[in-house]
Design a protein around this nucleic acid. Structure first.
Length: 413
DNA sequence: TCTGGGGTCCTAGGACCC
DNA sequence: TCTGGGGTCCTAGGACCC
């Protein structure tokens, strides 16, 4: 989806279209609605970035705001310096989640094999649809087997364009929003290509296009190469994906390890065999909060304790709502110098209970230094287990254990 | 005036087991 | 002066993504 949160807000406040708008900060400052008694027209007053003071970051900026240098993850104070007149709207996750479900359902109605990639992104597997269209058999678009020739390549390109156009139309009809779609031989290439013509993009990328369209791009555009890898590659004189493709794989392995180094080489050549995963179970659930001012374990004990308990309750609520229980309780602390520590401990049996979670997280807290002031506190639960299924009790486990092997008698047999 | 919140996956060492 | 070879689970941190 294009500038997703901001685009959802523009549906609500169409009068902001064309203005730089930034989504971020807390859930305060909803625009005030005023009805003009003369015309009956609804007028709203929006707050601008100008007088913002606080710890928030930009979650999404409209393209007009991006033109001023305001982008996701930028601190709102810095954003205010760049674009004081930009309108600031609070994030409304509930609205975005609803719209997210809506656009995903619209795509799913045409192509059922979709992989969720967070609130505003999906992968779609078109392999079956391609076969159903009678093109290229079970081959993927672009083929993994070399270059396309003649009419087959043309038929695939036409199919890809039509599939992408169908998705874009379905999403627009369901939500009124634009998105960018790329059809490519695999997820890695589709992800990179979907950014090439944003916003409202439609890209069909085949193997033959990699040299011309992918290799000139910076390595950072590869999903999985972040700021750290980017900086280290830069140190090796590798800036573009083409540079990375030309690099000696042995050098990459030496600098980044066997697994990561080999993966980088493959990625630069556009190779990726990951399937589209249409179902997955959550691994962990967490809640965290950054305080408006840094708190001290001793001086602000009561307030910290209240927030701590609240976080545990929210994790517990999430577990119950989603139908999970977990065994590993984790604590996260960020100090005023931004240094972050975590501690966790694993219980014998999974729990959903806020009191159990609070007690376990409290034990974790005892293992963490508390001299410095704290800016963030978080509670996490992992090793999740469906709440409906009974956790094997000691008695059940004993019944499942096979009879002791005579080959390896032990003291306890 | 620094830097949100919710996630995933990987690595690496140590404990422990057979 | 020497000390296996697997395996799993747990913990802490870090990179990365949306």
């Amino acid at each position: 989806m294009d500038a997703f949160y901001a685009s959802v807000e523009l549906l609500r406040y169409p009068e902001l279209r064309g203005r730089p708008v930034v989504i971020g900060g807390g859930s305060r400052h909803r625009p005030a609605a005023v009805v003009d008694p003369a015309s009956g027209e609804t007028l709203r007053t929006f707050s601008t970035l100008e007088r913002y003071a606080g710890r928030g970051v930009v979650t999404t900026a409209t393209y007009e705001a991006r033109a001023l240098g305001v982008h996701s993850a930028l601190g709102l104070m810095k954003a205010a310096a760049l674009a004081p007149q930009a309108v600031l709207l609070p994030t409304d996750f509930e609205a975005y989640r609803r719209m997210s479900a809506c656009f995903k359902a619209a795509v799913r109605a045409h192509y059922p094999l979709i992989e969720d990639r967070g609130i505003d992104e999906i992968y779609v597997d078109l392999t079956d649809a391609l076969a159903a269209a009678g093109i290229g058999g079970t081959d993927r678009i672009g083929g993994n087997d070399g270059t396309d020739t003649g009419t087959d390549a043309e038929a695939r390109r036409t199919f890809a364009r039509q599939a992408a156009a169908t998705m874009k139309r379905a999403v627009h009809e369901a939500t009124g929003l634009s998105c960018s779609v790329a059809v490519a031989p695999n997820k890695l290439l589709a992800k990179i290509a979907s950014d090439l013509e944003k916003p409202d993009g439609l890209v069909v990328l085949q193997r033959d296009d990699i040299e011309r369209r992918i290799w000139p791009l910076p390595v950072r555009r590869i999903n999985g190469i972040g700021p750290k890898s980017d900086a280290r590659l830069e140190g090796l004189g590798i800036r573009t994906i083409g540079d990375l493709a030309a690099a000696d794989p042995a050098v990459l392995v030496r600098h980044f390890g066997q697994s990561h180094g080999a993966w980088m080489h493959e990625a630069a050549h556009g190779r990726d065999e990951r399937p589209v995963v249409t179902h997955s179970e959550p691994r962990s659930i967490s809640r965290e909060t950054t305080f408006e001012r840094d708190l001290h374990a001793r001086h602000d004990r009561a307030e910290l304790s209240r927030i701590f308990t609240q976080l545990c309750e929210r994790v517990s609520d999430d577990l119950v709502r989603k139908g999970y229980a977990g065994r590993t309780i984790g604590l996260k602390l960020r100090y005023d110098d931004f240094h972050t520590v975590t501690r966790d401990c694993t219980l014998v049996e999974p729990t959903q209970d806020a009191v159990h979670i609070r007690r376990a997280a409290g034990e974790c807290l005892k293992r963490v230094p508390l001299e410095r002031r704290i800016r963030l506190l978080g509670v996490r639960i992992g090793a999740l287990h469906p709440a409906a299924l009974p956790w094997p009790s000691a008695a059940l486990r004993a019944a499942d254990v096979p009879a002791p092997s005579h080959a390896f008698p032990t003291l306890f047999d």
